[in-house]
């Protein structure tokens, strides 16, 4: 009966990690800083959005609707509409932001949303210019 001494003893080296600091991110308390380029939720700079519906056209998931905003933000908006995104459809491929002619539609690095009602996932992109800013 040959005993594999190395095979028996070497796994025991794992016990040494008992006193190492855990690698866990205790999430709700400590948040990992997500890099700026991350494809999170949408933001839309309404001052420059021209309502051209390019985003609506390229979206393969049919996730973007053009709707009227509560007030007029941009006088040059050709259709008077702004995009609203259905987060029951979106796949965060960022094709819509790639084609946006004025570059107003962007993806933020905020990306968590949990809700108890599945009807609450129609998302109006927050109106601010740069990623990471608070909504004005």
């Amino acid at each position: 009966m040959a005993i594999d001494v190395k095979g028996v003893l070497s796994p025991l080296s794992a016990i040494g990690t008992l006193f190492e600091h855990p690698r866990t991110l205790t999430y709700p308390e400590v948040k990992k800083d997500i890099p700026i380029g991350y494809r999170g939720f949408h933001i839309n700079n309404l001052e420059t959005c021209v309502g051209c519906a390019s985003c609506e056209e390229i979206c393969m998931n049919d996730a973007i609707d053009m709707i009227h905003p509560d007030k007029e933000y941009n006088v040059k908006n050709t259709s008077g509409c702004i995009p609203r995104i259905d987060y029951g459809r979106c796949c965060w491929c960022s094709l819509c932001t790639d084609v946006c002619p004025p570059g107003s539609l962007k993806l933020d690095n905020i990306c968590t949303h949990a809700d108890c009602d599945p009807d609450n996932f129609l998302y109006m992109p927050k109106n601010h210019k740069n990623i990471g800013e608070e909504a004005s």
Binding site: G51, E56, I67, S79, G80, C81, R84, D86
Partner: peptide, 19 residues
Amino acid sequence: FREQRGDALDAKEEMKKKR
């Protein structure tokens, strides 16, 4: 599908209208 999206507008129509 979900029904809440009934208020979607046709952007081309809106553009024409606005023009």
